[in-house]
Nucleic acid binder design. Structure first.
Lengths: 291, 291
DNA sequence: GCGTTTTTGTAATTTAATTACATTTATTGG
DNA sequence: CCAATAAATGTAATTAAATTACAAAAACGC
């Protein structure tokens, strides 16, 4: 476990002097790893053995070992954090922030993924006679993207951003069909309605949305994208990426479950794209590319 | 820079004894960080000062400092790597692999981003009387997504997946207009053609594509997505995510450059979406959501 | 308030790391 | 091939750092 978290957690159990040591270290852990036990003791106004005892209390072999673990905690600790873009940011700064926020969002989504729901979702998709994708606004393009991916298989796939078309399609869903509803907030009325209609047709409704949202309650299976609320400053960015990667996971599961036969067909579809593009100068044609 | 990589890189310049030290450390770096200088010296069959000198050669303050940096290198080391999905993977396994590969791709793209090109791109977009997005296949949905984002501003934006529409639009481009061409491979013939036409109209052609590709050569500004070739096993996944995040960076830059006035307008657009969704039970309405 | 336990500090000890210097080993010009 | 020189390595001494043992002080219960 992370040493810094541990220090925060055990703070209550520390003695007065130990708390002083912890405070100095936590104030600037990066600097602390370059201090000797004597310097640190002086900064905390305690004796050297107190610092040593403090290290032992945190299950380290001694001060040098403690510094080593602290250094590792710092290096590992929260690799990517969500950082807000500021008006004053340089191009390099806000670019980095956006990349890191996105990576942080993916990391969180990965950690909180409900494997059970994921398996159910892949099962349902694998056996579905028909699959349709719904979403509005930014989620519409996620739905569109999902359709593109599933088009490579021979299961009929539907997507439209037209409300009437959507309602018509979903009304005709049959048992076993999968209706995928995508929404970051899970509070888009039109989409909840679609999900509701789908439920009545006995189709399997799969939500890629916020847990415990109105939409989630309409769904049979929910894959939640637990992206922190404040991730998207001006518009949904990281949350949408998380949705897309979830779709990637779904289609990978679908492909794996379809077995080698289907994967051969997939390769054929890709090879059919060859003529539409320039050949590579330096390397053999790669049939896995597709744009 | 990573100490371990550094050791590998500088191996040739090391002296005989230094190489012995390096070998022992590299053989099991994790164990090395818990050894004293005496133990390490004995293992490498060299004297203690030789180990010390070795540390200094790697620009560390001494042996303890070296161990600290080594520990950090180990903790940090390749946080996310591209790992292939195998037929035998469990759901948890391939899900993790996809998430990590995507994060790895983003990490690489972030590192290799050409800040100069990025600034030029944002400048061009900020001043463009008209912006259009082009892409085929998987990149079409990226282009579509880009259009969605830019629609929130009052600059005219165009996107279509119809080849004729695209050609018509691009033919009418004026100087200052920005034509954004998106392709993972950069070898899609139709897109290169579009880019070529755009160039003749004196519009600024911005490519989000592979460096040194046929498409890249047609562009005025290139933002390259340096995703390893083998990232996308069955279909473009990580590369497309990288493109999307690049779009996010572009629009953020665009928004920042537009100043506070435009950002107010953006908020108004978002607030206009309120009625279309359910209110939050537990928290105030968040005007930044939009799907 | 007194005995007990816990906490903290002082001083001594041990261990580790570094420096200064000597020796060996390679390198080059004649 | 052999000095002369430079580079590399090791030995021993020095210094710095960390730990231990023990004593003093503070906190706690009765």
């Amino acid at each position: 476990m992370n040493l810094i978290d541990k220090m925060h957690r055990d703070m209550a159990q520390f003695s007065k002097s130990e708390r002083k040591v912890a405070a100095v270290i936590l104030h600037d852990p990066k600097a602390a790893i370059h201090k000797s036990i004597a310097v640190l003791a002086k900064l905390a106004n305690v004796s050297e053995p107190t610092v040593n005892r403090f290290c032992r209390r945190l299950d380290t072999k001694g001060y040098p070992d403690f510094k080593l673990l602290l250094a590792q905690s710092l290096a590992k600790g929260t690799p990517f954090v969500n950082r807000h873009v500021e008006q004053s940011d340089s191009t390099a700064e806000f670019a980095s922030k956006i990349f890191e926020s996105t990576m942080a969002a993916l990391n969180i989504t990965r950690k909180h993924i409900d494997l059970n729901a994921l398996e159910q979702a892949i099962d349902a998709l694998s056996q579905a006679p028909k699959i349709s994708f719904f979403g509005f606004g930014a989620s519409a393009s996620v739905a569109h993207d999902a359709q593109n991916k599933f088009l490579r298989f021979d299961t009929p796939v539907f997507f439209s951003d037209d409300l009437l078309m959507q309602r018509m399609t979903v009304t005709n869903a049959r048992k076993g069909d999968v209706v995928v509803c995508i929404s970051h907030t899970g509070r888009t009325k039109a989409l909840c309605e679609i999900a509701g209609i789908a439920r009545q047709t006995q189709a399997t409704v799969l939500g890629i949305t916020a847990a415990d949202s109105p939409l989630a309650r309409e769904c049979n299976i929910v894959l939640s994208t637990q992206v922190p609320e404040d991730t998207d400053v001006y518009m949904p960015m990281a949350s949408r990426i998380a949705q897309l990667v979830l779709i990637d996971v779904l289609i990978t599961g679908y492909t794996l479950r379809s077995g080698p036969d289907f994967r051969d067909r997939l390769r054929l579809v890709k090879e059919s794209l060859r003529d539409s593009r320039f050949s590579r100068e330096d390397a053999p044609q790669n049939p896995t590319d597709s744009d």
